[in-house]
Computed example of a mutant assay.
Amino acid sequence: MPHPGWTDFSFDGIGTRWEISTPSPLSVALRGRLLDAVAEYDAAWSRFRPDSVIAGAARTPGRYVLPAGAAALGPLYETLYRLSGGAMTPLIGGSLEQLGYDASYSLRPGGPPLPAPPWDEVLDWQGTVLTTRAPVVIDVGAAGKGQLADLLSTELRAGGVGEHFIDASGDLLNAGSVPVEVGLEHPYDRTRAIGIVSLGAGALCASAANRRTWGDGLHHVLDGTTGAPVRTVVASWAMAATAMVADALATALFFVAGSRLREEFECSWLTVHSDGHAEYSADFEGVLFS
């Protein structure tokens, strides 16, 4: 809990654990609206359920209408696809399934790594409308959890709860007036921290190769150009005004130098490489342990 005396509302959604901390307990009605927002997001974007909107795109090419948030996700992914040379892509779902991270969680590779299809060949994303030219497995996990945190924050504000702190299994959004000290998890030992950062108003999101691992060195951060897990980076953190952007940039740091991302996004960042060295922006307000 970020502040002594605050209360927590905890639940599971989109495959992760959520904790929303507030100065006073949330009303039953507001809790219901939050859970409805989670359910609506899952119904649109989950590639793990056969009745979601994007599950249809995995079966049949065509025109798919998604919720309003898709209009913000599309341009964000397009920018990061360009900056990463196609390595970061919403079309990575088929590559994940190929390596065993599929709807049934088989965790058994179905063959060698499979590159994601080129965006321009199979996908047209205009606002809330996705038009596909071939069956594609879309996965917006690199930014979706962050976007949902932003949506829940908007719902809380609309319900009169301006002060709140959202923890989506380590992706954090602070809408409170007091900064929160956050430990940065060691990429090889979850019981240890490599540093501490002070999170004021805004979001701090992380991505790590030690999360969602299986098989022989497989993990969920794949390079769309090869379909194989990234080996050069083991962990990253990004801070931004919104959780959607921070979440997306944390993944983008596996492919793009933080200094390059800073040219197009207002953010601060930290990247830990597999050889042990770290790079970070001058305004990443944290302390790294030796």
Rank of each mutant, 00 (worst) to 15 (best):
L130W: 05
T128P: 09
Y101F: 09
M88N: 05
G111T: 13
L253T: 09
S281I: 06
E97T: 13
R157K: 14
P50D: 14
L73E: 07
D171F: 00
R211Q: 04
V136R: 12
A149V: 01
F165T: 10
S281C: 08
A71G: 12
P112I: 10
A57H: 10
M88K: 08
V182I: 03
L148G: 03
V256P: 02
G286W: 03
D42C: 04
G74R: 12
D247T: 05
I54L: 04
A201W: 06
A37R: 09
W269H: 06
Y41R: 10
W125I: 04
G13M: 03
V287I: 15
L156S: 07
H186Q: 02
E163K: 11
A37C: 12
R47I: 04
E285H: 13
V65W: 09
G13I: 05
I14W: 00
W269R: 06
L91P: 03
G111Q: 10
Y41E: 11
I138T: 06
I166Y: 02
F265V: 03
G227R: 06
G74V: 09
A55H: 07
R231A: 15
T191G: 14
H273C: 09
P115I: 05
L76W: 04
H277I: 07
S281M: 08
G146L: 00
V287W: 15
P4S: 11
A68I: 15
G286V: 07
F254M: 00
E163I: 02
V122P: 00
P118G: 08
A240N: 11
G69K: 08
Y77L: 06
F265D: 10
S207E: 09
L91M: 09
P75C: 02
L173M: 05
G32W: 01
L151E: 14
W237N: 15
F255M: 15
S21K: 01
V53Y: 02
S236T: 06
P67A: 08
L156Y: 01
V140K: 14
V136K: 11
I166K: 10
S52M: 03
E279V: 10
A142N: 07
Q98P: 05
D102Q: 02
P109R: 08
P4I: 05
Q147M: 10
S106N: 11
T271D: 03
A70D: 07
D8I: 05
T242A: 14
S153V: 06
W214F: 02
F165L: 03
E40N: 04
A143I: 00
R260C: 09
V197H: 07
H3M: 11
T60H: 08
G224K: 06
R17P: 06
Q98S: 11
T131L: 13
L26G: 14
G146S: 07
L253M: 04
Q126C: 13
G200I: 01
Y81A: 13
Y81F: 12
P25I: 08
G62N: 15
S46V: 00
L107V: 06
R33Y: 09
R133V: 11
A134F: 08
P118L: 02
P67N: 08
R63I: 09
G258N: 12
P113R: 03
I196W: 11
H277Q: 07
A241D: 13
R231G: 15
F289V: 14
G69S: 08
G217E: 05
D171L: 00
L204Q: 01
A143K: 03
